Structure formats: structure tokens, C-alpha cells
Computed example of a mutant assay.
Amino acid sequence: MTADPVIPEYILIIASSARMLVQAARTAGLKPLVIDRFADQDTQAGAEAYRRVESLAETDIKAAVDYLIECYGVAHVVYGSGFECYPDSLRYLVSRLEILGNRVDVFARVQDKKAFFSCLHDLNIPYPDVSFNPPLYGGDWLIKPLQGVGGVGIQRWRAEEESSTGVYWQRYIEGGQNSVLFLADGGSPQVIGFNRQWSVALDDRQSFVFSGIINDSELPDECKALVTDWLKKLVPTFALKGLNSLDFIQAEGQGYVLEINARPPASMQLYDRDLLVRHVRASQGELIAGLSAQTGCAGYQIVYALSDLRIPKVFAWPPWCMDLPESGALIGAKQPICSIIAHAEKSRQVLEKLSIRQQIIVNKLHQGIDRYGIYSKR
């Protein structure tokens, strides 16, 4: 018999950028204690207490984790993006706290590309051809890091270039970039929504960096049903729990799985639902029935800097901006400046709003530098 789920008063949130989860925790009535790399203004505003760290490596987070446990007696942690490269840090967290989300071994198994694609093969779930050695035959291939997040480090493969370590190769398929946000209790999935996303080329070696997402996928119902069937196989196979997303390409009527993000993804903030509470309860084996219908569309986009810039000492951020750097912060070229969000009845209106709002930020921050000082692609 499963014990009743525990909804803690204090919750430790740790991620490369924790703002989304901090705001979700506040909305759910929880008190978030935060560790992340940026300590953005809106993260600080929502946190009960926070610590900024240089990285998510165990050596960098250990003192912050120990401090928050000692001062607040926090016993539960939700982790977000950024741990793909730091599995030892997750093992440290589980030695001190109860993880609300996927277990460390589950997260590691999903990140093990050989095991993941072998599992897809066994489950008869299609995916683009992969190779763990330089391809011996021609075609259009991508080279990807074995441990990556947000598309960072993905580039087109050139056969004449020297082979890298810590990478794999995947055949490039031209098609729509999609994802499905879902909850899981270790055995069954609960679909929250299908999303369309886009990437941006920051340079030749950063060609597919995550840029934005909208909760209107334009996928036909039969495609959504097929992807849902995939989830019904994948969730029990990997024992997935809590909020996750599945990224896939849709090309000429065929879907191809790319990866599972086995932690709360960016698309979580596009849905007006109590998803953090649902994440906590699903992590403890309970899927809450009765998802409310989503009204309208929402879109989220990251604004990247084209050149180095410094945030003015006095700067009025529009209310639709998020992940706000502190006044005077230096933003390096190709790094995120902030994020923007838009809501409307139709997806076309959302995309138009994102474009206009992005240009407003450009005009405010890059006057006298470069009126096109951002990266964006949809």
C-alpha cells in the first residue's frame, strides 16, 4: 500500500537556472530554498533563501546544500536542468535529501545514449540513425555531446574534422521540432500537452541551441495518439516519475524520438495548472486526475546576446521578461540575456508578440551597439 504523498513546507530547488521552479513553488504555496548559477532578480524575489554557485559540480554545491539543510531543516529537493553533466552531484543530493522527481539511476539510464537508443530499438520506437563511432558512409549527420542539455554543443558533422571524445553521431532529419510534456508515476503517463519548439544557430559549433517553445504543436490527432503510445511503453520501462518531456522530430508523417528530459522542462511554464504539486505527488506514486482544459496559447523564448553587453545600472524590465540579470551584469556574446513570454488566443498571435517583445529588448539594450544584437529563429 502506497503511503499518502507528502507536500513539504520547505523545498530545496536546484538547477542551472531555477527561476521557473521557484515561481511554481511559490504559486503552490511552498517555501523554496534555491541553489543555481545565476541568482537572477526574479529568482531572488521568489526564494525564501538562495545561494549562487559557479557550477552544479558536487564540489560547488556541497556547502550550499549543507547550509540550507542546517538552517532550514529542509528534507526534500526538486532538481531541474543542468545535471546532465554532473551525475555525482545528484548522488550527493540523494545522500542528504529525498528527491522529488526521477531517481538518480533513472536519470542516469535515460542519459546513457547507448542504453537509451537500444531501448527504443527493443520497443520498436523510431529514432534517427545513431552511431558511436564516426560514420563510415555519407549523408547528413550531426555530432552531439553524450552529456548535453538544451542543444548546446550540437553541430553538423564534417568527415574531414578530427573525431572528438564524449560525443555520438545522429543522422540529421529535416522536420518539425516537437515535445510532449507529461507526468508519470513510474508505470503510467499522463499527457499535459504537446508543444512546438525551435532552435537557434549561435555559430558553426552551436547550431541547434534551444531558443523557444509554444504549447501549440499543430500535430494531427493520430500523431499525438502514436506518441502517447510510445510514452505508455517508455514510462514503465524507465520507471519515470514526476514531470518529464519527450523531444521528437516530425517529418513527412513520421515521428522520430530524440531524447527524454527526465526532469521538469521549460514547457512546464506554458500551462496554467498546479504542475509542481502534481510533480511532487507523481514522484511519490500518485497521478492526480482531472486536468483542467488549457485556454489559449503561450510561448516562451530565450533572448541571446550577439555581442558582449552590460546591463544598465537603471533598467526597467517589461513585465513579460523573466530570468532577469542583476543591474550592471556583464552578458557575454552568445549567452542568454533574459527570457520573454507571451499569451494569446492563437499561436500566430503568440509568435508575433514574441517577435515584437524581443525587438523591444533589443532596442532598449543595444542602442548604439547593434540594433540586431540578438539571436532568434522560428
Results as ranks from 00 to 15, higher is better:
residue 4 D to G: 00
residue 13 I to R: 00
residue 14 I to C: 08
residue 23 Q to K: 13
residue 23 Q to C: 01
residue 27 T to V: 08
residue 29 G to F: 09
residue 29 G to M: 11
residue 45 A to Y: 01
residue 55 S to M: 05
residue 57 A to Y: 06
residue 68 L to C: 06
residue 73 G to T: 13
residue 76 H to R: 12
residue 78 V to R: 02
residue 79 Y to Q: 00
residue 80 G to E: 08
residue 81 S to P: 06
residue 82 G to Y: 03
residue 89 S to E: 06
residue 90 L to Q: 09
residue 103 R to N: 12
residue 110 V to Q: 04
residue 115 A to Y: 12
residue 115 A to S: 14
residue 124 N to F: 07
residue 125 I to A: 04
residue 128 P to M: 03
residue 132 F to G: 12
residue 133 N to C: 09
residue 135 P to D: 04
residue 147 Q to E: 13
residue 148 G to A: 15
residue 157 W to S: 05
residue 157 W to P: 01
residue 163 S to T: 14
residue 172 Y to Q: 05
residue 182 F to G: 03
residue 194 F to P: 11
residue 204 D to K: 11
residue 207 S to K: 10
residue 207 S to M: 12
residue 208 F to C: 04
residue 219 L to S: 09
residue 221 D to R: 12
residue 228 T to F: 11
residue 236 P to G: 08
residue 237 T to Q: 15
residue 239 A to G: 11
residue 242 G to P: 10
residue 244 N to F: 03
residue 250 Q to V: 13
residue 254 Q to K: 14
residue 256 Y to W: 14
residue 266 A to N: 07
residue 268 M to S: 12
residue 274 D to P: 15
residue 282 A to R: 01
residue 284 Q to L: 10
residue 285 G to M: 07
residue 292 S to T: 13
residue 294 Q to V: 13
residue 299 G to N: 08
residue 301 Q to A: 10
residue 302 I to E: 02
residue 302 I to K: 02
residue 303 V to I: 15
residue 303 V to K: 03
residue 303 V to C: 07
residue 308 D to C: 04
residue 314 V to S: 12
residue 332 G to N: 05
residue 338 C to M: 14
residue 339 S to H: 04
residue 340 I to R: 01
residue 342 A to W: 09
residue 345 E to W: 00
residue 348 R to D: 15
residue 353 K to W: 12
residue 355 S to W: 10
residue 355 S to L: 10
residue 359 Q to I: 02
residue 362 V to G: 05
residue 364 K to E: 15
residue 370 D to P: 07
residue 372 Y to V: 01
